[in-house]
Design a protein around this nucleic acid. Structure first.
Lengths: 235, 235
DNA sequence: CCAAAAGTGTTGGAGTTACACCCATGC
DNA sequence: GCATGGGTGTAACTCCAACACTTTTGG
């Protein structure tokens, strides 16, 4: 770093890409922008970073404001800094994505921000580079969820395997063989079968499961490839 | 986003974690900080973002200044924004990591910035949160290189398989079976065998290889897991 | 001729895919 | 009793890991 006295200060923002799962489809929460520029267009929820706030704090605050939720999955995605990304002013934005249980979302907050859930595949155009942010978030989720049980963050406390399969099929836009899917899932040991059945989708009913949270945390990072035994690495 | 007229502007910096491979060990390029605070301590190379500069441009510029190199592998790593990360002033820093062929590094630039290569395992303490940045960069490289041929970015135009193996062994701090390693490498189809041998490490000599760049670009993203045929996905 | 590194094949086990039928129940 | 979605088992195959000896040649 060189001497900084002549350097330009600029605004720093955080934008949140919020995903939810309604039991059938992956959705994204957008707000109708209430001010210029681009007033009344759809947008991600965001905000400026205060002088004494960390990036994570800012992102959590925004998420709390819009959803009423605390302590949900939130991950820094990427910093967007094209000088032309906001036509008015130089603003660098650090994007975060969140995965929430859509049922915990506090619906009454929708009004305040004119928020709405959209199917990710039927999303309106967004302001500035927010569309690009969403694309990168989707890519990241597809990548990470192929290796780690990330999508479980979207599930309610109890869920059925057909629901989970529908989630994976939606995220990857593909059909999955249900026998193999179940085998893979149960072999992870992450699921605990409950007595209760969900009969809303079939007459037979599908058993609910819940997540074994200890195993989930322990196994989240497990994966495989170029290196023979990645879990046995020395350091 | 809410009205921004009252929001705080702040300095935005880019810091580069620069890795190189000397044929035996993974190294990192550090500079001796020439100004206060923390003058004369070891540091990453960084700089402030100008008003009309994108983040990528700023990172590339810094890399060029310090190494004389353009067009090398450079990836945004993470944005660090703890309000206390710089004791003097609020500075948010976007960290990038670079993988370079250490032989292309222009040594005469070392003097200007008091730069030096260190073994990543024998690195001095760094200013501010730069040590943490390096840790996260190492983690990221270990993760990504286990799935993708990332470490090839560190190699010179021609290299031997024992060199490459030593690189992997260094990055993962593990021993790799050379038969399996060679098989895995050759099965990727990324390597082209040359006539020439490198006799600097043995009497028998090891054949040089070069990278098949087209296949490298085409196959960089290939990998596998939760989803049966990730390469056959519909979208 | 010998030390030191490079190069080479095989086998067993684990994991993954492909595939089709029966079950439970509400109507 | 039948339509609907839920649940189950097996066999072939592919991939990966484990394993040790021969080759080359400069000194």
């Amino acid at each position: 770093m060189t001497n900084n006295t002549t350097e330009t200060k600029m605004l720093l923002a955080v934008d949140c890409i919020i995903f939810g799962f309604d039991g059938e489809n992956l959705k994204i929460l957008l707000i109708k922008r209430g001010f210029e520029p681009e007033k009344d267009k759809w947008s991600l929820m965001g905000g400026f970073i205060k002088a004494n706030e960390s990036l994570d704090e800012a992102a959590n605050k925004i998420l709390l404001q819009l959803t009423g939720l605390n302590g949900v999955y939130l991950e820094q995605l990427y910093a967007f800094g094209d000088p032309a990304r906001d036509p008015d002013e130089r603003i660098v934005s650090v994007a975060y994505f969140a995965l929430i249980d859509i049922h915990k979302y506090e619906t009454q907050l929708s009004d305040r921000y004119h928020a709405e859930w959209f199917l990710v595949n039927e999303m309106p155009g967004l302001v500035f580079d927010h569309g690009q942010m969403v694309e990168i978030a989707k890519q990241k989720i597809r990548y990470k969820a192929a290796l780690h049980p990330l999508l479980f963050e979207l599930l309610p406390r109890k869920f059925t395997i057909p629901q989970l399969q529908s989630l994976y099929e939606g995220v990857y836009n593909t059909k999955i063989d249900n026998r193999n899917f179940i085998r893979k899932l149960t072999s992870t040991g992450l699921l605990i079968k409950l007595e209760e059945k969900d009969k809303s989708n079939s007459k037979k009913g599908a058993f609910y499961f819940k997540l074994d949270k200890k195993k989930y945390k322990a196994k989240f990072q497990a994966f495989l490839n170029f290196i023979p035994n990645p879990e046995n690495l020395i350091s």
